[in-house]
Design a binder for these strands. Sequence first.
DNA 1: GTTGACATGTAACAAGTTACATGATTGA
DNA 2: TCAATCATGTAACTTGTTACATGTCAAC
Lengths: 164, 164
Amino acid sequence: MSLRHAVLGLLARRPSTGYELARMFDLSLRSAWHAKHSQIYPELAKLEELGWAEVVSRGPRGSKTYALTDAGHSELRRWLVEVPPDRGQRNEGAVRLFLGQLLGPEDRRAVFERDVAYVEQEEAELRALRDDLDPDEPFAAQVDLGLRINAVLLEWLREQASRD
Amino acid sequence: MSLRHAVLGLLARRPSTGYELARMFDLSLRSAWHAKHSQIYPELAKLEELGWAEVVSRGPRGSKTYALTDAGHSELRRWLVEVPPDRGQRNEGAVRLFLGQLLGPEDRRAVFERDVAYVEQEEAELRALRDDLDPDEPFAAQVDLGLRINAVLLEWLREQASRD
DNA sequence: GTTGACATGTAACAAGTTACATGATTGA
DNA sequence: TCAATCATGTAACTTGTTACATGTCAAC
């Protein structure tokens, strides 16, 4: 598991409300994790119970801003450094590529073309994002990796789509 | 969801027992999906109930070989072609890269070096796999994509590890 | 005869999604 | 005042994991 540590990580970047976290999962982390508020709020409660986060302020609409405690920071560090990553997770896209080979030529081409369109759009979004970013911001390196992987994927998909 | 369609896809490649499917999830699909036998067996029962698969033979140790029915084949095709892929799934590796930027220089380097070692090992495995494969086999294209993505990732990780 | 791979299943639990439910504040 | 966005929560359900439980067959 690890919604716990994803939340811990986002709180380390900046103290936030559950609502803000839900938006970050939709925006910054969108392609890496998607968590619903219905899971986030209970998780924040649990983080508080564990002593890893605490409410540091309350806003106008009943909002509660959470921040990491010292214990929370060291737990996050421990997880990042000491816990071996769980490789080999579900990846529907990869399964589809794998199974796409079973389709007849027409269906296969349609599927690859759909994927090409998607990756092209993502590329445009990443480019726009990168152009908005200070290149020294650590996050810029991430976006750059995304662009490089997209480029490789796009080339491969085009080769596949034009095969026969 | 979609263990259902992953199983359907594997059965389309060749009729198999639950045990064999569990091994395929561990081996061929290992980096894309990991399903336990405790989930596979109930899923096979459900596929049979839906009329998408059926037992085509029984082996010595109580083994049951399942194969797709016509309805199963058309459901698989429908899913691959008509159901839009669920992009944006959990990806612990990406979250870790994202959060790794929060670490101090020493921890960060250690983490990136661990990742470099992992990707290097995976690269070696993929290379060995590719050398075993007939280059015309559709699966070879998949392996090739894996190698290209690995190469990009490795380069990026090395840049990050040697940054500062 | 005993170890290891083959082979299937269930039960209890953890994690994640969908749907339900409510209310406050801001801006048009 | 009405709509959109901010904001939080719970309940029911689905999916996935871990642990338990059992039995067969082949090779040594």
